[in-house]
Nucleic acid binder design. Structure first.
Lengths: 237, 237
DNA sequence: GAATGAAAATGATCAGATCACTTGGTCATT
DNA sequence: AATGACCAAGTGATCTGATCATTTTCATTC
């Protein structure tokens, strides 16, 4: 049984989707570049417009392309990625959010250690910028934007590891509902402490101290996790 | 800049996609269950067939639904997932494969430790079955199927952690091109040693020895990684 | 009871048209 | 020259309605 072996009859849509991806690759297009109009694509592949649109929707769902009304079809931000956050995922339950944080607490510390070993000047600068922006946002009180920038820090930390796959994984587990994570932060409350912890992690990475970076990242995420758990199951008395 | 703040104008397609997901959720449908015909959906949402099909293609791309020619629309295997392997990802380069294995070597050991703490009898039995099947396949020499079952073992190990998100992450990094990993295995060659290592991991998990499970998993993946690296950069003399 | 084959249900694709949005240019106003 | 209103072309979004291909069902037949 199962799908192993045998000739997989590729559907027309499969062909269209992969052909368009090849087209993008052949032209060396990068994220954000304009691709080609729907009508032009339909003509190129000798299919009707609705058909090419179905294939485009499929690509769109994985972030490979982007359709902008009135403007055109563009290369998407997630072109070429192996691991993705489900763009259609519903708002996760409280349990799921705890799971998500547990996953992060498990994955990100060793990633931070790797980042401490492989970090480049460019990566350090990117993290510096995120922390500077975060400091500004604490001043201005824009908590929604702050939550996003804090996630950006975690992502750039993962990027600093030099492993794109790990960066994608971390991206995927951090992208889920910043709104919910904002609520968490709001409860956690101590935004300044968060910033300080991020700064400490960055310094460990800058100093190429893998062990310290790992420990600080673990403590940081475990701290958040503790707060969440306390809220979920408030003390009995 | 960026997408923060502001009113996000949800398109008709966004509404259709999320409405259909809600419909599936409301009906308590599980993966594999029949959903509803395209025509019926078009009628229900008062839109034309090509429109509903675009929305369905979007859902299909994330594994939320499945369209079977002549049969109907069914609930997909990945319904409700947060993290996904990009179903449209091209065959990764050699570098990317090494990255993928590095990511696995980083993530899976602590997951194995967690599995040792949280494993249930059902999870243990599932892993037992995979190893039994793997043993059979070594006998019969079906290496393609063996590679798949070996990946199944790693997935069920992650499932045993009790954290669905972690399981999804491991799923995502193991699903990528079993074909390529098969090639790796073919080079690695020692299929019996692999099986023995898997068995040792399982026994550590069964014994609830988190530390051992973690160490064995790390050694197992590092071993594969070493082989790959040796192949990629053969010794100088 | 099993094999056969017609009919119905359903997805896949097509063709052409109309509506809605974006963009760039024109042109009058300032 | 800078600004803003306006218009027209390009492009995505959606509709209508039909035809083809595949699967499933079920009555018929042996």
């Amino acid at each position: 049984m199962s799908s192993s072996g045998g000739v997989v009859r590729r559907s027309l849509l499969d062909d269209l989707a992969s052909s368009m991806l090849s087209l993008i690759a052949d032209r060396n297009l990068a994220a954000g570049d304009p691709f080609e109009s729907v009508r032009s694509l339909a003509e190129r592949f000798k299919v009707a417009v609705p058909t090419i649109r179905e294939a485009l929707r499929r690509l769109e769902a994985t972030g490979a392309v982007e359709l902008r009304h009135g403007s055109g079809v563009y290369v998407g931000r997630h072109i070429g990625r192996l691991v993705l956050a489900n763009p259609l995922a519903p708002t996760p339950s409280a349990d799921r959010l705890v799971e998500l944080l547990q996953a992060r607490a498990l994955i990100e510390p060793p990633v931070a250690a790797l980042a401490a070993q492989n970090r480049t000047d460019a990566a350090l600068e990117r993290m510096d910028q995120h922390l500077a922006e975060a400091a500004d946002l604490i001043e201005s009180g824009d908590h929604a934007r702050l939550a996003e920038v804090n996630m950006d820090f975690h992502r750039s930390l993962a990027q600093a590891s030099g492993n794109a796959t790990l960066a994608e994984v971390v991206e995927s587990v951090t992208v889920v509902n910043v709104r919910e994570q904002l609520e968490i932060l709001h409860i956690h409350g101590d935004r300044q402490a968060d910033l300080d912890e991020h700064r400490a992690i960055l310094e460990a990475v800058r100093a190429a101290d893998a062990e310290l970076a790992e420990r600080l990242t673990r403590e940081h995420l475990d701290g958040v996790l503790t707060v969440i758990n306390d809220r979920a199951r408030p003390p009995l008395s």
